[in-house]
Amino acid sequence: MPIYEFQCRDCGKEFEEIVLGADETVTCPECGSTATQQLISRCGFKTGGGAPASDGGEAAESKPQYRGIGSSAGCAGCSGGNCSSCG
């Protein structure tokens, strides 16, 4: 289900709303106005199989190792996609 960010044009409140259809009217939860505009949301994602920039103090040995079905090789060196070690 898509969750979008909106801002009310009347009171300025920013909020998130699940929108099922493009023509669905979105109402501000603060003031009840339907004068809302959809915001362009920031998103983040990680590509590749490298180590994260910061492990937040967690030791590498305590992190789970992901392995393909029937494979003994981990995916830590994999850059993603299809490879023989991921199964």
Rank of each mutant, 00 (worst) to 15 (best):
G87V: 09
G48R: 06
G48Y: 00
E16F: 05
G56T: 08
S85D: 07
A73F: 03
Y66W: 13
K13L: 08
Q37P: 02
F45W: 14
C86D: 00
Y4N: 05
S85G: 08
T34K: 14
S84F: 07
S54C: 08
R67F: 14
V19W: 00
I3R: 05
K13Y: 08
S54G: 03
G21Y: 09
T47L: 10
E61K: 07
G81Q: 06
A53E: 15
K63Q: 14
R67I: 13
G81M: 04
P52F: 07
S79T: 15
I69D: 11
N82H: 11
G70R: 02
D23F: 01
Q7I: 14
G21A: 12
Y66N: 09
R42N: 12
P29L: 01
R67C: 03
E17R: 13
S62I: 08
E5N: 08
A60Q: 14
G12C: 03
E5P: 02
T36C: 13
E24A: 10
I69S: 15
K46Q: 10
K63H: 14
C31I: 06
S85N: 14
C83Y: 02
D10I: 04
R42A: 09
L39E: 05
R9A: 08
E24Q: 13
A51M: 13
C86I: 01
T36Q: 01
G12P: 00
E24S: 09
A60P: 05
G80S: 10
C11N: 04
G81D: 07
F15A: 01
E58D: 11
D10H: 06
A60Y: 10
G74A: 07
D55P: 02
Q65K: 15
E16L: 11
A76R: 12
S41L: 06
C86W: 00
A59W: 07
G81R: 04
L20R: 05
S79E: 11
R9L: 09
T25A: 08
S84Y: 05
I69E: 13
G70Y: 08
S54I: 05
Q65F: 07
G12W: 01
N82E: 15
G49V: 01
M1N: 03
E14W: 06
G44P: 01
G50K: 05
A53T: 12
S71E: 13
E5D: 13
K46W: 09
D10C: 04
E14H: 13
M1V: 10
D55H: 14
Q65L: 11
T25H: 02
G74V: 06
S41E: 13
E14R: 15
D55R: 14
G70P: 00
T25C: 01
G70N: 04
G87Q: 04
G74P: 00
E14C: 15
L20P: 00
T47D: 06
C31D: 10
K63D: 12
S41A: 15
D10K: 10
K63W: 14
G48A: 04
G77H: 07
S85Y: 03
T36I: 03
F6Q: 00
S71N: 10
G81E: 05
S62D: 15
A73T: 07
G57A: 02
Q38F: 03
S54T: 08
C78M: 01
G12L: 06
F15K: 00
K63M: 09
G74T: 10
T25F: 06
S71L: 08
G74H: 01
A53M: 09
C8S: 01
E30G: 02
E14M: 12
P2G: 03
E17Y: 12
P2A: 08
A22S: 13
S62N: 13
G80L: 04
